[in-house]
């Protein structure tokens, strides 16, 4: 078995119009920018994929990564907890113009919905949001004297994930706090596509150190020196580069 692919373009080739796509990361930390940019490249060449539903904690920052996907018109709906950032103009303008749908989810509920999706748990109860506008219309139940809101699982057709090491079987490690939503999204998508800083042979990752077991991963592609969103934004980068 070998889950590695030679290019980013091949890794994202199967994502179709209207797909639900989870994108890992918390802000720029753990965001698979190169996979996202490969998907934008494909869209600019072929017009596909579009009308995507994106699941991410945020809504992009500046004009790279997820913000660039939104800017190029690929995203119909966003499911996130915090659609603000240092430079949120791309999402904000489209949202206020009614051009993009937003499903706002408390951050811990978002994480647990994704985990539940991956774990085969169709619904669960959480105290988060009880008595607030975000629980309107949702079933509420009392357990041991406290009230809880019922939330549904969240699953996706694809997950785009950034990891540190990945072996050819898809076992993964992550770098510091870049872990965040990435291991959860690996579990919750039908097809999980991971960019790793280095592809290694099976056995090169100590089994005690595997964070995401390869069963949750379908494709691995190497991006040796991945860009950081924060660095790109400090350089005022746009994707793709626009000739002056």
């Amino acid at each position: 078995m070998n889950k590695t692919l030679p290019t980013l373009a091949e890794a994202v080739a199967g994502i179709a119009d209207g797909a639900v796509v989870m994108i890992g990361g918390f802000g720029g930390s753990g965001a698979p920018i190169e996979l996202v940019h490969a998907l934008i490249d494909r869209f600019l060449k072929t017009g596909q994929p579009k009308n995507l539903t994106i699941v991410n904690n945020n809504a992009g920052n500046g004009h790279v990564g997820l913000a660039a996907m939104i800017e190029h018109g690929m995203v119909a709906k966003l499911i996130c907890s915090f659609p603000r950032s240092a430079d949120p103009r791309v999402f904000t303008e489209r949202y206020l113009a009614g051009q993009i749908e937003l499903e706002l989810v408390p951050q811990g509920t978002l994480a647990e919905r994704i985990r539940a999706g991956g774990a085969g748990i169709p619904a669960f109860y959480t105290p988060a949001g009880f008595g607030t506008a975000l629980a309107e219309g949702k079933p509420v139940e009392e357990f041991d004297g406290r009230s809880y809101v019922r939330e549904r699982w969240l699953k996706a057709d694809f997950a785009l994930v950034k990891a540190h090491l990945g072996d050819t079987l898809g076992n993964l490690t992550f770098n510091k706090a870049a872990r965040n939503f990435n291991p959860l999204m690996c579990m919750a998508a039908t097809t999980t596509i991971v960019q790793v800083s280095q592809i290694v042979k099976p056995g090169a990752i100590d089994p005690e150190h595997v964070v995401t077991p390869g069963i949750f991963v379908q494709a691995v592609v190497e991006v040796a020196n991945p860009a950081q969103e924060e660095d790109l934004n400090r350089a005022n980068a746009h994707f793709p580069e626009v000739a002056a």
Binding site: S81, P83, P88, P106, Q107
Partner: peptide, 10 residues
């Protein structure tokens, strides 16, 4: 404006 909750509700 744009609503945003982050982790506050949790």
């Amino acid at each position: 404006g744009v609503p945003a909750v982050g982790g506050a509700l949790d």
